[in-house]
C-alpha cells in the first residue's frame, strides 16, 4: 500500500503540465454537468425575472393584453401615491416594534447561557417553538387572542379592571398588535443566534472580571455586551430585511373590510394588491424595485454604522 502511493504521487506531479491542461478540460466538462441544471434553473426562474421586472416597471398592462411602454410613468405615480408611503411607514413601524424585541432576546440568551443551567434544552425548545410554527396558523390564533369580546388578552386585562380595546380594528393599535406577534414569532430565532454568540465569550474573562470585583450587571455591560455586538448586529440586519417584507400576518389578521386594513397594510401587502388583485403588473414591478432599493440602502447603512458600535476582536 505504502509503496504504491510512493510510486503514484511523483508520477502524477511530473505530468502536471501535459496532463494538467487535459485535466482542466475534463474539469470544465464535469463542471457543466454538475453546475448546468442549477445554472439553467436559476437563469430561468431568478435571473431572467430580475431583468423582466426591471423592464415591466417601465410598462403598463395594455388594454388588449400585452405590455405598453410608458417610460417613467410608474415611477412618477409611485412618488405621488400616498398609499405607497403609508405602506412603507407601516412596514418601518412593524420593523421598529420587532427590533424592540431584540433587547428581550439578549436578556433571555444571557440567562440561558448560565453555566450548567438546568432544563436548558426545555427552555430552548419552548422559546424556539414559534420559529417552527406556520405563521398563518399562528396569526389565526393571535386573532382569537386579540378578539375584543371573548379574546384572552382582554380577559386578562379585565382582571386588573382594564376594559381592553378592540385591538385589530383600530389603525395604530392594529400595527402594535401585529408587531407583538412579530416579536413572538422571531424571538426564538434571535435567542438561538445570540446564544451561539455568547458561547464565544470566554468564560475566563468573565471570571477574572468577577474576581476584580465586577458585579453581574457590570460584567454584562462591560464584558459580555461588547463581545456580543457582532451577533447583535447580525440579528438586527436579518430582522430588518425580514420585517420589511412582512406580508402574511397582515393578510391573515386583518380581513378585507377591516377598518384598520387600509392604514395598516405593509408595502408587500400593497404590492400583492396592486399586482395580483388589481393586476397592475407594471406598477407593482415599480413598487418591488422601490422596496429593493430601500432594503439595499438600509442594509448598506447598517454596515456603515456598525463601526460605531460593533466590536470585532
Amino acid at each position: 500500500m505504502t509503496t504504491e502511493t510512493q510510486v503514484t504521487v511523483p508520477r502524477n506531479l511530473s505530468l502536471v503540465t501535459a496532463k494538467g491542461r487535459k485535466r482542466k478540460k475534463r474539469d470544465t466538462l464535469a463542471a457543466i454537468i454538475f453546475i448546468g441544471p442549477m445554472t439553467l434553473g436559476l437563469s430561468i426562474f431568478y435571473l431572467w425575472p430580475l431583468v423582466r421586472t426591471f423592464f415591466l416597471s417601465f410598462t403598463k398592462w395594455g388594454a388588449f393584453g400585452g405590455t405598453e411602454f410608458t417610460g417613467l410613468e410608474n415611477y412618477e405615480r409611485l412618488i405621488n401615491d400616498s398609499d405607497v408611503w403609508q405602506a412603507l411607514l407601516v412596514s418601518f413601524g412593524y420593523t421598529g416594534i420587532v427590533l424592540l424585541g431584540i433587547p428581550v432576546a439578549i436578556v433571555m440568551a444571557v440567562l440561558l447561557n448560565q453555566k450548567n443551567l438546568k432544563w436548558l434544552t426545555g427552555y430552548r425548545v419552548l422559546f424556539f417553538l414559534p420559529v417552527v410554527t406556520m405563521p398563518v396558523a399562528a396569526a389565526l390564533v393571535w386573532r382569537l387572542l386579540y378578539n375584543g369580546r371573548y379574546g384572552a388578552i382582554n380577559y386578562i386585562l379585565s382582571w386588573f379592571g382594564i376594559d381592553g380595546p378592540s385591538w385589530l380594528t383600530q389603525p395604530g393599535l392594529a400595527l402594535v398588535a401585529i408587531g407583538i406577534v412579530g416579536v413572538w414569532l422571531l424571538l426564538g430565532q434571535q435567542i438561538i443566534i445570540l446564544l451561539a454568540g455568547l458561547q464565544g465569550v470566554p468564560r475566563t474573562l468573565l471570571e477574572s472580571s468577577a474576581i476584580d470585583g465586577a458585579n453581574a450587571v457590570q460584567r454584562f455591560r462591560y464584558v459580555t455586551l461588547p463581545l456580543l455586538t457582532p451577533s447583535i448586529f447580525f440579528v438586527v440586519v436579518i430582522t430588518v430585511i425580514g420585517c420589511l417584507q412582512m406580508f402574511d400576518l397582515v393578510f391573515v389578521m386583518l380581513e378585507p373590510g377591516n377598518p384598520a386594513l387600509a392604514s395598516t397594510k405593509t408595502i408587500v401587502y400593497y404590492f400583492y394588491q396592486v399586482g395580483f388583485v388589481y393586476n397592475d403588473r407594471g406598477y407593482a414591478a415599480a413598487i418591488a424595485f422601490l422596496l429593493m432599493v430601500i432594503i439595499f440602502i438600509l442594509t448598506a447603512l447598517q454596515f456603515r454604522l456598525q463601526k460605531r458600535w460593533v466590536h470585532y476582536e
Binding site: 425575472p49 430580475l50 420589511l244 429593493m292
Partner: peptide
C-alpha cells in the same frame, strides 16, 4: 446577488413563466 434580492421582485415574471 440573487440572494440579496427580495422575493417580491421576482414574483411577477415567475408567475408569467
Amino acid at each position: 446577488s440573487v440572494m440579496m434580492v427580495p422575493d417580491e421582485l421576482l414574483i411577477i415574471p415567475q408567475y408569467e413563466i
